[in-house]
């Protein structure tokens, strides 16, 4: 068996045994279920779920990632004493946490959805987009947290930076975006704003989800430009590859630092 897979398997079961992951699943499960129970099967539930995906998932992923990396530091050092390829080790522990996190997200959201929702083709697609963006965000933010953890020996500093990054992507970036739009408001900015959203995975995920909803009509002309872009094959390719870039860049950066790191 591949070393990477073996390490991943070990980490996977380690995480599964962890109480927090169960707590995370149950939290999502209860939340989604309550939304459906009180909100009925309507678009507003989807909007609230979208908020969960966009705020909660990045935060929990980044926190989980950083905690688990610091916690398994001794284990990593032990394994490093063995003749194991560093790359495989890193990818193994990354897979070991990202897979259970994604799984618990999928389970936590899907079960209430399957029970409560009235399925039709359109809703199925929206749900699929929700799942895919959620999984992508998990992958991205765990990768970022690992990068931060590898770069910083000090736990407190690592935590601080991770939180700050989450804060940047959920709040500060949008503030800067708004500022740029107002500074350049004499120019046509519809296309430019598409480009800007690509620089923040959370914004990109939000726009992709919004376009699946009725509420997209509120976006007026800008929305129409977005629809045209993201609805086309080109838009699909661009948004898909941007999300992949957002996953792969922190992974490889972290990997590089990890292989060069002096433990």
């Amino acid at each position: 068996m591949n070393t990477s897979a073996q390490i991943g398997k070990y980490e996977f079961f380690n995480i599964i045994r962890n109480r927090w992951i169960i707590f995370y699943t149950i939290l999502l499960l209860i939340f989604t279920d309550l939304l459906f129970r009180f909100g009925g099967d309507n678009p507003k539930v989807f909007i609230s779920l979208m908020n969960v995906v966009l705020i909660l998932i990045p935060l929990l992923s980044i926190m989980f990632g950083i905690i688990s990396f610091y916690n398994s530091r001794e284990f990593i050092e032990l394994l490093l004493a063995q003749p194991i390829d560093r790359k495989r080790l890193y990818l193994g522990i990354y897979a070991g946490i990202v897979i259970p996190l994604s799984l618990s997200f999928v389970i936590g959201v899907s079960i209430p959805f399957i029970i409560h929702a009235d399925w039709n083709f359109d809703k199925f697609w929206s749900f699929l987009v929700l799942l895919i963006t959620g999984i992508c965000l998990t992958f991205i933010f765990v990768a970022i947290s690992y990068l931060v953890a590898v770069k910083n020996e000090e736990k407190v500093k690592g935590f601080g930076i991770a939180l700050l990054l989450w804060f940047f992507f959920t709040l500060i970036f949008d503030g800067i975006l708004l500022l740029i739009l107002f500074m350049l408001d004499e120019y046509p900015l519809e296309k430019f704003s598409i480009i800007l959203t690509l620089f923040n995975p959370i914004d990109l995920a939000r726009v992709l989800l919004l376009l699946r909803l009725d509420i997209a009509a509120l976006m007026g002309y800008t929305g129409a430009v977005f629809h045209k872009f993201f609805g086309s094959f080109m838009g699909f390719t661009v948004s898909g590859s941007t999300l992949l870039l957002w996953i792969s860049i922190p992974i490889f950066w972290g990997l590089k630092s990890f292989t060069q790191k002096d433990f």
Partner: peptide
């Protein structure tokens, strides 16, 4: 109000920043 002034700002619809 912001969107009325600057229509492309609608990209931020439903974002956490705007809610804050």
């Amino acid at each position: 109000f912001l969107v009325q002034k600057n229509p492309p700002g609608i990209v931020l619809l439903k974002s956490f920043f705007i809610q804050m």
